[in-house]
């Protein structure tokens, strides 16, 4: 009763063509199995590593992740966590990943704008300096920040996966505005772009992002086949982790807490029965 089926993100609407209409529709997200589902689910480290590569090589060209720091990659539960380096800031692999990225900074002596190799304490750099610049480079649409995108969209990871794999040619009878792409998983109202029968308006909406993934676009270090489905699944898992890096800690802590509370309740139950055993009530 508490699900609010209409809580679609405002930025999603911003990406849509036309005014925000009341009768939005979209296809149900695809049903995908994730290793991190369920009360004991954990992230698949290899998948997170592949997903980071997809983000780094594809998504990061347009999408920022302002809540993410390079050190996060090496923290417990992260894609590049190493038992030997409890402190992610010492993790040499994370350091080298950060070093590969150029960070904008100010020279402390001259005050000039410079770029320098990144460190573990640096944020993931944003592709655009500000919102107008991002819009100007993307036909007026703002590529949303991906830090918590897996929580900011109804449907979560399944929605992300569905969007990434859901691009296909618009059905005959649909007028697609320039710079927009049809995606059945995108919430939208197609009725004013549809010339076919009024009762057969296709579900879905327009998205300003061109299909970002292509077969072979990313070469996975572990030799996984670089299909669109694989790339989409891995990057969705990476975004799920990025949205809540403490998820595994939460579930583990929760297991202990539930067992404790259950035992506590049983103890109290017997204590209660014992105290009340001679009282008619």
């Amino acid at each position: 009763m508490l699900r609010k089926a209409f809580a679609f993100a405002a930025l999603g609407l911003a990406l849509m063509a036309g005014p925000a209409l009341s009768a939005t529709t979209e296809a149900e997200p695809r049903d995908v199995h994730w290793s991190f589902e369920g009360p004991l689910g954990k992230f698949d480290k290899a998948q997170l590593q592949r997903g980071y590569k997809v983000y780094r090589e594809v998504c990061s060209a347009c999408h920022a992740m302002n809540q993410m720091y390079f050190r996060n990659l090496g923290q417990k539960g992260g894609p590049f966590y190493d038992e030997k380096y409890k402190n992610p800031n010492d993790n040499p692999y994370v350091k080298s990943l950060a070093k590969d990225i150029q960070i904008k900074d100010i020279d402390q002596d001259t005050g000039d704008a410079i770029t320098r190799p990144g460190g573990t304490a640096d944020r993931f750099p944003a592709p655009f300096p500000n919102e107008p610049a991002a819009r100007a480079s993307n036909g007026g649409a703002l590529p949303p920040d991906l830090s918590v995108i897996a929580k900011a969209r109804e449907g979560g990871t399944a929605y992300l996966y569905s969007i990434l794999t859901g691009f296909h040619a618009p059905p005959a009878g649909m007028t697609v505005p320039p710079g927009k792409y049809y995606n059945p998983y995108m919430p939208g109202d197609m009725s004013s772009f549809w010339k076919g029968p009024k009762d057969k308006v296709p579900v879905g909406g327009f998205i300003a992002m061109p299909p970002p993934l292509a077969p072979g676009k990313v070469t996975f270090d572990d030799g996984s086949p670089s299909t669109v489905a694989q790339q989409a699944k891995d990057v969705s898992a990476f975004l799920a982790w990025a949205a809540e890096p403490k998820m595994e800690e939460r579930k583990q802590f929760g297991l202990g807490a539930m067992i404790y509370l259950l035992g506590f309740s049983i103890l109290l139950w017997f204590s209660y029965k014992r105290i009340w055993r001679n009282v008619a009530h």
Binding site: L2, F8, A10
Partner: peptide, 22 residues
């Protein structure tokens, strides 16, 4: 997050209203 709203994971933007305010 079951009792919350997905839209609250998007930073406030006075220029855009969520599709459905609840």
């Amino acid at each position: 997050d079951a009792l919350g709203d997905a839209a609250n994971y998007i930073q406030a933007n006075p220029l855009v209203t969520p599709a459905h305010i609840v």
